[in-house]
Write a protein that binds this DNA or RNA. Sequence first.
DNA 1: TGTAGATGAATGAATGGCCATTCATTAACC
DNA 2: GGTTAATGAATGGCCATTCATTCATCTACA
Lengths: 199, 199
Amino acid sequence: MKDLKKHSKIITAATKVFAKKGFFTARISDIAKEANVADGTIYLYFNNKYDILISVFEEEIGKIVEQVKKLLATETDPRKMLETYATRHLLTMKKNRNLAEVIQIELRQTNKLIKDYRNNKFTEYTDLVADIIRLGQKQGIYRQDIEPNIAKRFFFGALDEVSRIWNTNPDGHFSVDEISEQLLKIFLSGILAKQELAG
Amino acid sequence: MKDLKKHSKIITAATKVFAKKGFFTARISDIAKEANVADGTIYLYFNNKYDILISVFEEEIGKIVEQVKKLLATETDPRKMLETYATRHLLTMKKNRNLAEVIQIELRQTNKLIKDYRNNKFTEYTDLVADIIRLGQKQGIYRQDIEPNIAKRFFFGALDEVSRIWNTNPDGHFSVDEISEQLLKIFLSGILAKQELAG
DNA sequence: TGTAGATGAATGAATGGCCATTCATTAACC
DNA sequence: GGTTAATGAATGGCCATTCATTCATCTACA
């Protein structure tokens, strides 16, 4: 009980500090201070600094993946599914800016550091988009000439960069709904089959 | 003469090392070795490690911006302009994977480290997209209900993430043309005005 | 033309500071 | 009072940066 509490207290603190300073510039003592524990305490719960980063990723992204999966399970229309995915992502990133920053900043760096960090939660997360697109193609709703593995990168990349809007100063005034609407407007009419566009 | 040579030799070496290891894990001695100079020599040309990173950014992205600007100046059709932009970007990133990695990895980190690194070459680069979109809207070719400042992020984010395809193992087999085609297919039909879609 | 001295570039070993990690000690709890 | 958790000062290693020294290239002068 107490263990869990302290563990997640450290995760939250680390997320905050990593977001603010980035992994390499963040100090263990910063995280400790933020979590109101002693430096050494952190090593009772994590093996090393890097282990903290991995945990932030696995646990926090894991939560998002589960949430999105659950939401998607209630949908059958591929159009709605992409909408759900995008809106959920943007909501999460806007609500938890710290996590957003960590994901956005460390994502690529991290993949460089750990080679066997493939098949991770993150890949699982982006692959959901490819699955949705394939489903839509099977149903004839989405264009057949779209390559799901390119489109998934396209979609996630757009989503990711667009959501940085709240972490950078100018343009920060847009709402989740506005951005989500713009994003889907462009992407959906870009991948819909001709007859669906007309309809 | 000799100065310029050594300066750019170090820049090239640094780009390579940063790409491989990331800024924080890269050692000055790695860069020195790669450039075939002594560690100390680097400090004759740069103030510090960070200065090297900035220089890589400014000089290399600067080149790209100039190239793209020049190319765009020869186009008048906003559709063609986006195509030119995308294709050029993808070509550059595929040809110079080291630079691509540095941009992709360090971009967000860098903006965190230097606050006054606003109004940089990079912002200039992405703002080109917003300009193109506004132009297309003025001509009635692009939809009026697209917000250029969101769309530019959308477009650049998609482009950036899609171009990572060559730096990650699976899916790396796609060609520049294939990817460029897919990207434009989605984005263009996403932002074109109705009558243009039909035509 | 050959020599000596001057100038500046280049070198790389040595320095110093920083910080992740450890661990002897203390506190909390049953 | 014994077991477990927590502490935070001390340690040790790493690496950016420095700088005394070397090297290369000139200049001047006989």
